[in-house]
Design a protein around this nucleic acid. Structure first.
Lengths: 246, 246
DNA sequence: AATCTACGGATTGTTCAACAATCCTTCGAT
DNA sequence: ATCGAAGGATTGTTGAACAATCCGTAGATT
């Protein structure tokens, strides 16, 4: 068992260019909340996880990250708590935190969540603007496929499914979906998918979108359901590599 | 504006009777993980939230809780992070954390999540044992209704819906549902519901369960959907009281 | 040779104390 | 009555310290 290369980490420094969500103070004054240091650490780690700089199974040492980012160990700890609640990272008591690694069961579970959320959102329809967002994601996918850009095709596909959930205009469903997509991204870095993987989906997305636009919600939902089942099967085949992660 | 009574807190002391989930160490040895102090603090606060000892809008001061439970402020902070990720508590930067208070929009949102998750789980059916668990929750509700015990009727109802989600055997859906139910509990403490509220649902649950048991999954799903819509409407009427929370 | 045990280093879990930053309130001035 | 400035309180963050735990290794035992 190759103990895997040491945590590859780009020596990025911690900045504060983040937008900063608007909150309002007790007196009613509006205020642009500066993300706390812990949040910025979490954002930075999330970014590195999304980029694949931190691969599944890799260990995250508190002290290392603390000095690399120039923050206190306690702050890193708070960031870890946040990432753990998003399942991007797993805590092993007294052993440390490790980048989460989706096993076969996890993949199935993630798809179970997606089936529940996406189908429900799609079946309920949505406002014209929200439908337009779905359409935009479809076109984005077409362009990426035409350009043979699999990276772009992947993100376009995620935009498509994110837009479907957004139809429901539910903050909670949106955050759940965001977390699920983040988990999927983690998995894709582990098992690199062949180039034609995404291109295959473009016509499916097109068909679903057309059904949605013409108001055939039940048919759209059925198509999406079939799509998700097929997608899960495809991923199941890829999973052949030995899971050496912890 | 009555500044509301100061945080009512039972002077419970922090114990460690918790079950402790089983983990396995790197060498493969099995180990009963003792919940960390932060987790125990979170559990204790969760309990007080469920019991209604901490009402929506109440402020949780770090130092107060720290000395009450005999732990460090930093540890309380970690517990807060956990509760915040579950939406049981809201962080206002530089102002403190407050017990979450579900507004009208939140109630609708929670029901959107429930519609997605519960209907999906029900439509997929489930194993005989899992169906039996649903049946058990129905009978539990009948007994509670017969005894005019609205408290028991409420928990039985939550068991019923929890059992429905459990049909899917999805860890992620189960935790999502658990969080949603915890949020609902919060809301019920805020707006006390009349006694006949739950009893009304017993026959509905019975009918849904019968449909499930006889394999009429689509019909069961439709019944559940209608049930959830009605339930949301009922709660919408209750929400009339002025929201003085923060 | 294989297994068990004890030791040692390293990392996590938790506490404590301090300080800056921010907020809310109160007081005072206009 | 409105506005602005000082004061007190709480949060956000740091740094250091220590106990608890784990892992690997070396040594002892069979």
């Amino acid at each position: 068992m190759a103990s895997s290369d040491p945590t590859v980490r780009s020596p990025r420094t911690l900045t504060n260019d983040m937008p900063g969500r608007a909150t309002r103070t007790a007196t009613g004054r509006l205020r642009v909340a500066v993300p706390s240091v812990a949040e910025r650490v979490a954002d930075e780690l999330r970014l590195q996880l999304a980029e694949g700089a931190l691969l599944p199974g890799a260990r995250l040492t508190e002290s290392t990250i603390a000095e690399d980012l120039g923050v206190s160990r306690n702050t890193v700890r708070e960031a870890f708590a946040e990432l753990a609640s998003e399942r991007l990272v797993v805590r092993h008591p007294n052993r440390g935190v490790f980048v989460a690694s989706l096993e076969a069961g996890d993949v199935h579970d993630v798809y179970t969540v997606r089936r529940a959320i996406e189908v429900s959102a799609l079946r309920a329809g949505g406002s014209p603007e929200d439908v337009a967002a779905v359409r935009a994601a479809v076109e984005e996918g077409k362009r990426a496929a035409a350009a043979r850009d699999e990276e772009a095709a992947g993100t376009a596909n995620q935009h498509f499914h994110g837009a479907i959930v957004a139809l429901a205009r539910s903050p909670r469903l949106n955050t759940i979906m965001a977390q699920v997509l983040a988990e999927m991204r983690l998995f894709f870095h582990k098992a690199t998918v062949d180039a034609q993987f995404y291109q295959h989906y473009v016509p499916d997305n097109e068909e679903i979108c057309l059904a949605l636009e013409s108001g055939e919600l039940d048919r759209a939902a059925d198509l999406l359901l079939a799509y998700l089942d097929r997608s899960e099967d495809n991923l199941g085949e890829v999973h052949g590599d030995a899971a050496d992660a912890e």
